[in-house]
Computed example of a mutant assay.
Amino acid sequence: MTVIDFTAFIGRLATSSGETILPMFRTSLAIDNKSTPGHEFDPVTEADRAAEAVMRRMIKETFPQHGIVGEEFGSENQDAEYVWVLDPIDGTKSFIAGFPIWGTLIALLHRGTPVYGMMHQPFIGERFSGDSQSATYRGPSGARNLAVRRCALLQDATTYTTSPLLMNDADRAAYGRIESQVRLSRYGGDCYSYCMLAAGNLDLVIETELKPYDVAALIPIVTGAGGVITTWDGQPAQHGGRIIAAGDPRIHEAAMKILNG
Rank of each mutant, 00 (worst) to 15 (best):
Pro37Met: 09
Ala143Leu: 08
Arg177Thr: 13
Asp42Thr: 15
Thr230Ile: 08
Ile4Ala: 14
Leu13Lys: 02
Gly226Tyr: 09
Tyr160Glu: 04
Ile221Arg: 02
Ile221Val: 12
Gly74Asn: 04
Gln133Arg: 14
Val54Met: 12
Phe6Cys: 02
His66Pro: 06
Gly130Lys: 01
Pro122Cys: 03
Arg177Asn: 10
Ser35Met: 06
Ile10His: 02
Ala174Trp: 06
Leu153Pro: 08
Ile244Val: 12
Thr223His: 00
Ser141Thr: 10
Phe6Ser: 00
Gly226Met: 12
Asp79Gln: 15
Phe25Ile: 07
Gly130Leu: 09
Ser141Val: 08
Ile258Tyr: 03
Thr2Ala: 10
Val3Lys: 01
Met256Tyr: 05
Arg49Glu: 08
Ser132Glu: 02
Arg49Pro: 05
Asn33Leu: 10
Ala30Phe: 13
Glu81Trp: 05
Pro37His: 07
Met256Asn: 09
Tyr194Ile: 05
Leu202Glu: 06
Ala237Cys: 06
His66Met: 13
Thr2Phe: 09
Ala47Asp: 11
Arg26Phe: 14
Phe128Tyr: 13
Leu86Arg: 04
Val3Leu: 11
Ala135Asn: 07
Ala254Ile: 06
Phe9Glu: 05
Cys195Asp: 06
Leu146Gly: 00
Pro164Thr: 03
Glu52Trp: 03
Thr159Gln: 08
Ala173Ile: 12
Leu153Glu: 15
Arg138Trp: 03
Ala135Gly: 09
Leu105His: 00
Ile229Gly: 00
Glu253Trp: 03
Met24Ile: 07
Thr162Ser: 11
Phe95Trp: 04
Ala107Arg: 03
Asp90Ile: 06
Ile258Ala: 02
Met167Trp: 13
Thr7Lys: 13
Ile178Thr: 06
Cys195Tyr: 07
Thr92Tyr: 02
Val205Glu: 04
Pro140Gln: 10
Tyr192Glu: 14
Val228Ile: 15
Ala245Val: 03
Glu40Ala: 14
Arg172Ala: 15
Glu81Arg: 11
His39Gly: 06
Arg144Lys: 15
Pro212Asn: 03
Met119His: 00
Asp203Pro: 04
